[in-house]
Design a binder for these strands. Structure first.
Length: 582
DNA sequence: GCCGTTTTCGGCCCGACTGTTTTCAGTCG
């Protein structure tokens, strides 16, 4: 049983308890544990009951319940709750305007158990007969039901960022004197997002109307002086908060989140005789303001080093800030090269020279050209001869270009049995080899683990590319024993990739952090299939930052000679490199 | 249900907006 499956059950218990109107802190405990399970880099099913206690948010009781789930497949307590409330009632909670109280009320008063029954009850006029519900609520719920599919979708970070930046741009023209910022999960660099959060400080009252009247607004969900919510065409929700200028820092902090981070921070404030809200830090005894305008000052007022937004996930950042041990996170400016890109030689849209010139233009001092290998027929993959001819062209161009070094590489498929898709002597004759899985994604975990371990044994594999193969919002990654594979990669000196393509971001943050803990080095690559694709590194950098990585953890922050020396082929065979004779 | 550098008991974050009200509960972030 994987962590996500465990997290789902715990979260569902939380939802059911909420409908049951249980103690809110108990509900939070289940949700915290669910979140903790979902983000843990350890497989909970591999841990003993005692080891599970070390996982934050899991105590004696939940450790036992998780153990029960792993061993029997169910938690009796969960089953009991499901006897009180049908599981389908939880669908009601996802409707805008329906929370646990309303869901319970609907079930109790009208025996409504699912969306269909709810819709029918409204159409038959039965809802407004319930005390506390009225015609407005009916209309709101009906709309929510019809838009449910549309609203359910989360969006990729890049898409949501574009939409948010367009809104900020429009608002700035309406209120040039205001400070307008993107906050929320976008500012933290989360890989997908459900809504856009925007903060304006020092803005005139007219800004709210400009926001609700923005050209892409389909419907206004809420409209107040300080807070408004809108639904954009296409289904994204956007929220605008307006804060006094003297509260800019506190508002930035508050609306950036995450929720877990903020709760911990406010708890810390209380322990120090302070109160933290979106307006500032105040002394509890006399309400005197201690900080507010500057975000860094909020953290300092609480005895903490300022914490970068990407780390604010409640994963140890507050303890690290307290000890002044926050990592100096890698930045886009640290990157000197890019080791994964395609040209028209396989499935890229730009030719070799165009890609090289584009790389020069974005400031790279080295790149690797890594077209696909033969198995990927639909991507026009190269066989040995094709790969070597391509390498010759890359080297010829390299001789002509100043200011950038081109490495002749390949993105070599790892075949289902773990063999590499091209012969060893061909791989040896290249400057760099990145290996990746593009087929047979659904192998059993044991088989996939063996496959990857075998691939890593090939001495010419330098980098394991997009190591889980996931596609965000589309496909889960393939499953394997990551600990064993990472340990083998560390032993061989193989680096793992953070692939910056917006629908991959693979490795993800928690896995990249695990890789570092396992002693691995990483690279951040664009996997560009066009000149414009080279710009994508910014997204991979966000992932690396969320993984607590520094420039030292990332090989392509190094100058070219140091970079090449750190590749596995150089580390393991310092004195000679075989040449291809066939 | 979790958690502990004042605690193994008694805490556990906070404010804005809406819709139903007759002074406020529910939802949301």
């Amino acid at each position: 049983m994987d962590n996500l499956a465990i997290a789902r059950v715990l979260a569902e218990i939380g939802d059911l308890l909420e409908i049951k109107n249980e103690n809110s802190f108990k509900i939070r405990a289940y949700r915290n544990a669910a979140d903790s399970a979902a983000h843990s880099t350890q497989r909970l099913s591999d841990l003993t009951a005692a080891q599970r206690l070390a996982v934050p948010g899991i105590g004696k009781d939940l450790s036992a319940k998780i153990g029960e789930l792993i061993e029997t497949g169910v938690i009796a307590y969960h089953q009991e709750l499901l006897r009180e409330f049908p599981a389908t009632i939880l669908d009601l909670l996802h409707l805008q305007g329906v929370g646990p109280k309303t869901a319970a009320l609907l079930y109790r008063e009208l025996n409504i158990k699912n969306l269909d029954e709810l819709e029918r009850a409204i159409r038959e006029g039965r809802l407004r007969a319930v005390k506390g519900l009225g015609p407005k609520k009916e209309a709101q719920i009906l709309r929510a039901i019809s838009e449910r599919a549309q609203l359910a979708g989360r969006r990729l970070l890049a898409e949501a960022s574009d939409a948010a930046e367009a809104i900020v741009f429009a608002l700035r023209s309406d209120a040039p004197e205001a400070t307008i910022s993107i906050v929320g999960s976008l500012r933290r660099g989360c890989e997908t997002t459900g809504d856009l959060d925007i903060l304006a400080a020092g803005a005139p009252p007219s800004l709210m109307a400009a926001f609700t009247g923005y050209r892409l607004v389909e419907r206004v969900l809420a409209h107040g002086e300080r807070k408004s919510s809108v639904l954009l065409f296409g289904g994204l929700q956007a929220d605008l908060r307006v804060a006094p200028r003297e509260s800019l820092g506190a508002a930035l902090q508050y609306f950036t989140g995450s929720k877990a981070h903020n709760i911990a921070l406010r708890d810390r404030a209380l322990q120090r005789g302070l109160k933290l809200n979106e307006y500032g830090v105040y002394r509890t005894d006399d309400d005197a303001a201690v900080a507010g305008a500057d975000e860094d000052e909020i953290y300092r007022a609480l005895g903490l080093a300022p914490i970068p937004p990407e780390l604010r996930e409640g994963r140890g950042e507050i303890q690290a800030a307290e000890r002044d041990e926050l990592p100096a996170l890698v930045t886009r400016q640290h990157l000197r090269g890019d080791l994964h890109m395609h040209t028209t030689a396989s499935d890229g849209r730009a030719d070799l020279e165009t890609m090289a010139q584009a790389a020069l233009a974005v400031g790279h001092t080295y790149i690797a050209i890594t077209d696909h290998s033969q198995s990927l027929a639909m991507a026009n993959g190269l066989d040995e001869r094709g790969a070597l001819e391509h390498a010759a062209r890359i080297r010829a161009l390299n001789d002509r270009l100043d200011g950038i070094t081109l490495l002749a590489g390949i993105e070599c498929d790892i075949r289902p049995d773990g063999r590499m898709d091209l012969a060893d002597d061909c791989l040896a004759a290249l400057d760099i080899v990145i290996a990746s899985v593009h087929s047979a994604f659904s192998q059993e975990p044991e088989q996939m683990t063996d496959r990857l371990l075998r691939a890593l044994e090939c001495p010419w594999v330098d980098i394991l590319a997009h190591p889980t193969g996931r596609l965000l919002l589309k496909r889960e990654g393939y499953r394997y024993d990551m600990d064993r594979v990472f340990d083998a990669a560390a032993r061989y000196g193989v680096a793992v990739e953070i692939n910056s393509k917006v629908d991959r971001l693979d490795l993800r943050d928690t896995h990249a952090r695990l890789a570092k803990e396992r002693g691995l080095k990483l690279v951040i690559d664009s996997d560009a299939h066009s000149a414009a694709g080279l710009e994508g590194l910014r997204w991979g950098v966000l992932v690396a930052r969320r993984a607590w990585l520094t420039a030292d953890d990332i090989l392509n922050t190094r100058p070219i000679e140091q970079f090449r020396a750190s590749l596995r082929r150089r580390r393991n065979t310092p004195s000679h490199s075989p040449t291809f004779t066939g």
